[in-house]
Design a protein around this nucleic acid. Sequence first.
DNA 1: CATGAATGAGCCTTCATTCAT
DNA 2: CATGAATGAAGGCTCATTCAT
Lengths: 199, 199, 199, 199
Amino acid sequence: MEEQKRTRKEILDEVTRTLILDAAKKILFDEGTQGFIMDRVAVQAGVAKGTLYLHFRDKDDLLKETLEKCFEPFFILADTIFESDLSPEKKLEEFSLQGYRFFEQQRKLFYIVMGSRELKTDSHMDEDSPYWGLVEKIARVFDEGTRQGLFKPMNSTKMAGMFLDAQGALILQQLLGKSTDPEEDVPLVMNVFLNGIRA
Amino acid sequence: MEEQKRTRKEILDEVTRTLILDAAKKILFDEGTQGFIMDRVAVQAGVAKGTLYLHFRDKDDLLKETLEKCFEPFFILADTIFESDLSPEKKLEEFSLQGYRFFEQQRKLFYIVMGSRELKTDSHMDEDSPYWGLVEKIARVFDEGTRQGLFKPMNSTKMAGMFLDAQGALILQQLLGKSTDPEEDVPLVMNVFLNGIRA
Amino acid sequence: MEEQKRTRKEILDEVTRTLILDAAKKILFDEGTQGFIMDRVAVQAGVAKGTLYLHFRDKDDLLKETLEKCFEPFFILADTIFESDLSPEKKLEEFSLQGYRFFEQQRKLFYIVMGSRELKTDSHMDEDSPYWGLVEKIARVFDEGTRQGLFKPMNSTKMAGMFLDAQGALILQQLLGKSTDPEEDVPLVMNVFLNGIRA
Amino acid sequence: MEEQKRTRKEILDEVTRTLILDAAKKILFDEGTQGFIMDRVAVQAGVAKGTLYLHFRDKDDLLKETLEKCFEPFFILADTIFESDLSPEKKLEEFSLQGYRFFEQQRKLFYIVMGSRELKTDSHMDEDSPYWGLVEKIARVFDEGTRQGLFKPMNSTKMAGMFLDAQGALILQQLLGKSTDPEEDVPLVMNVFLNGIRA
DNA sequence: CATGAATGAGCCTTCATTCAT
DNA sequence: CATGAATGAAGGCTCATTCAT
């Protein structure tokens, strides 16, 4: 029964935690990082301000977890792609396409992450940030390609960084209205990088 | 003499302005955007708080101008390259190399611009930001190459964005200690992009 | 019990609110509107500066409510008179007398309201200010007198305004030491106005 | 020649002084007491900020003199009336009418004086303010009437205060749009007061 | 005398965090 | 555990006044 109780507590905890994170996500989307204020998150979540601190160390912790939650669907998608049977080239292409689409739908998220300059949490600088996780996963695809003799040998981490950021540059231009066609942009990245690295 | 007087005043004004900007630069470097506080800038500059507002509209204005001042040497360098007689390929390579070196020396600046999330001034989002200025200039180089029959026809703005951000990815990795050799990295970018676009 | 709890909280809230208003009143009296500074009010109330903003939107709100609280006893008195069975003439006389006495005791308040020029809250200009509320109530007394055939027909609002301000002129002179005797002043107003309006 | 020089200086001084006062008047009208800021007055006057302090002790001094300058035409008018051959009753009536008209044209001035609560300078409280000057002059008219056997004996200062403020109440209502007809309002004051005091 | 850059005390307001209930 | 009133450090900005030129 002790076991049971603890479990129940843990479940309730999880529920509250999720409640808060969902609220935080909404606030982050609606108000941007400027408006990401503990008070508002608490109100949105329907919990007391103090409760926030029962589940997250401080504002930064909450923000970090919120961002992670925002990216979660994309990461799951990415993982699915990376762990599939597709060829390395196809994996990259598929990732490119999905990234493009994800941010097309989650336009605001991109603005917040790239554009907002209010986060202490520095996703680029932090070694175990989503950014670096992604870079490593893409690097593994390049390694895979090289192992299969499809790509030239290379510094895969660097190449992955370049691939990811070049992609980001296109998404940025897309969001700013310079173009809206993944049919055009995805091949563009793919051509540049595949021509550059094909064995 | 009227002329003279006005000139003298303008010079003094300029002196104070520079004094403040230098102080602001130092504060920005030492304390990051978090610590970029008007009071501190004033103390560092050795002027009164109010004086800051005699030369800059508000905190944001000061911050923006400070950043511009930080990048100035790099922009001048970039312009020199872009306006030189070098071949398009060489221009890109030289830009790549200089960018690499600039941020090697100004490591902190990169952290501040890329990493800090405290700036309202959003260099990526703002259409006439240094970022877009650079993109446009690089695009012109791509156009030039295409006109000379060296590069394939392409959407030069997109390509320039990709080129710049791919570069940034490498600089980031360099700064995080993943590598320190421009001898290795510059050819990397160049290879990828030139293979990808050469006619 | 939920009910109880909420009630208790509301009571505590009310206590703090009153604490602040009393402090604000004291500051207003002691220091005038010039010295009506949020910091000082907080210290006087024995609460933190931030607490002020938990109970009042901003400085102006606090000031407005403070003034209202200052006048409250007088308004209650006035209402008692206006709603009594006294004859219109007696009502006016009684109002006159009570106003005289109220400001005799609250001398400082008169100075603050009439003399101080620091309030944004403009009691004369604002259509639903205490001033206009009083004018309307007095006007009703004049109307009553006219209906009863005691007073000539008249524009009661205008007459009420004149009556109130004429009164104010006397109180002002009283406060400045020109006279101190309500026995003399009240009949003065009454004579002038009643002679002027009696049917 | 020394004489001459000093005179010339005095004239220039007077010119600057007037320049400043005119500017101050304009600022006061256009921006209200809120916007009555030394900087702006200086700019409007076309002189340096420091110059203001060469001609006026401090902001309060300037404000006081500005207000006096605003009322000057009305005071001159009033004096003309008070020193004329008119009967006391006619003097009061004429004063009433002219006051009414003056503020009708100078609507903004009335708002500023009565409505604005930003002036340290307290025209009502200060014993040698325009207000008290006016009261005294009106009191002399009442005295004159009493001497001529037209009015009952009375405390003329008090009566004058009442007369002036009752008048103010009507002007206030006029300005707030409750009525616009001096043909109606002037007789109103006159009736009340004359009935109240006629011998 | 005039100037106007510099001053800096002063003030309002925000918001992350705590802690008594 | 949850609560939310209280906290108070922190920070941006204003503007009357001064003084060196």
